[in-house]
Design a protein around this nucleic acid. Structure first.
Length: 278
DNA sequence: CCCCAGGCTTAAT
DNA sequence: ATTAAGCATGGG
């Protein structure tokens, strides 16, 4: 099907914004995206037009929400006053096109447990290895792919196979999370209707989940868009650009979206600096 | 070979 | 309550 999107929507920026780890880009510029067992191919046709491999029904039932197409990101960007906050205004402009995807809460929990103390390429590799080791293999006309594994599928791996995913000391955290969910001590889906505070507390009850990972799950899996994960990059931004303190209250309830613009802006500039001058 | 990565747990103050 | 070491592994 063909789709017109008039609001912010830039596949390259979303793919490089550190919220999704399984998007694969083709030479054509199209992305292959796996979500809830389904795979989508989405290709920019220029302007606001995109070609999607799904039919209209699957788009309405699955992908519309995944891409958060009900939110108006342009108006969120416009809430920032350049005179009051030039850094954030620059970040919003630079990151125009980013959206906060509504990804699967369970997948986000495991993905961000794996993310700790890794850079993004290493995170992607670890997650992919886990999917190949434990996830269901699906054949579709474009080839095969692996679904993100369920808690039971992860628990069914013996130690040797899990170790082969090269997750290091995070192996026991991944197992702990899978055991908690399989036993019903934690239900990631149920947190979709919980308050932000309740969700953070429940997530942090898992061994290996601290405040940062819990906030990432909250933002990218539960779509609590006021969640504000602070990693090493955001820490740098707060220290260097906001020595007097960052005004989170002013930007509520959209702190997570602004956080994502700032993260992308700062990291992309650091990346380009390294390529130009080293 | 070095430093660092979308950090957390545990132990020591 | 706050601080520090230890952690497995790989990318740059």
């Amino acid at each position: 099907m063909t789709l017109q999107i008039s609001d912010d929507f830039d596949l390259d920026k979303i793919a490089d914004s550190g919220q999704c780890f399984r998007w694969v880009k083709e030479a054509s510029g199209a992305y292959r995206i796996i979500h809830k067992g389904r795979r989508l191919r989405i290709r920019p046709l220029g302007g606001e037009t995109f070609d999607l491999s799904c039919d209209e029904e699957e788009f309405r039932n699955l992908w519309h929400d995944y891409f958060d197409l009900g939110e108006d990101y342009r108006s969120v960007r416009r809430r920032v006053n350049r005179d009051e906050d030039p850094f954030l205004a620059d970040a919003c402009e630079y990151g125009k096109g980013i959206r906060i995807l509504r990804q699967d809460p369970w997948e986000m929990l495991i993905s961000f447990i794996i993310s700790q103390n890794k850079n993004i390429p290493a995170i992607k590799k670890g997650i992919e290895m886990l999917c190949e080791a434990a996830g269901e293999r699906v054949e579709d006309p474009a080839g095969s792919y692996y679904v993100f594994p369920s808690p039971e599928e992860i628990l069914s791996l013996d130690d040797e196979k899990l170790a082969a995913c090269r997750l290091g000391y995070r192996c026991r955290y991944v197992k702990a999370a899978a055991a908690d969910v399989a036993a019903g001590r934690l239900d990631p889906e149920s947190l979709l209707d919980a308050s932000e505070e309740t969700a953070l507390e429940a997530l942090m009850s898992v061994c290996g989940v601290g405040i940062k990972v819990a906030n990432c799950v909250s933002l990218f899996g539960l779509h609590h868009i006021d969640a504000f994960p602070v990693d090493v990059w955001i820490r740098r931004i707060l220290d260097r650009e906001y020595p007097g303190g960052y005004p989170k209250e002013k930007y509520s309830p959209y702190n997570g979206i602004y956080q994502q613009y700032m993260f992308f802006y700062y990291r992309d500039f650091a990346f380009k600096r390294n390529n130009l001058f080293v």
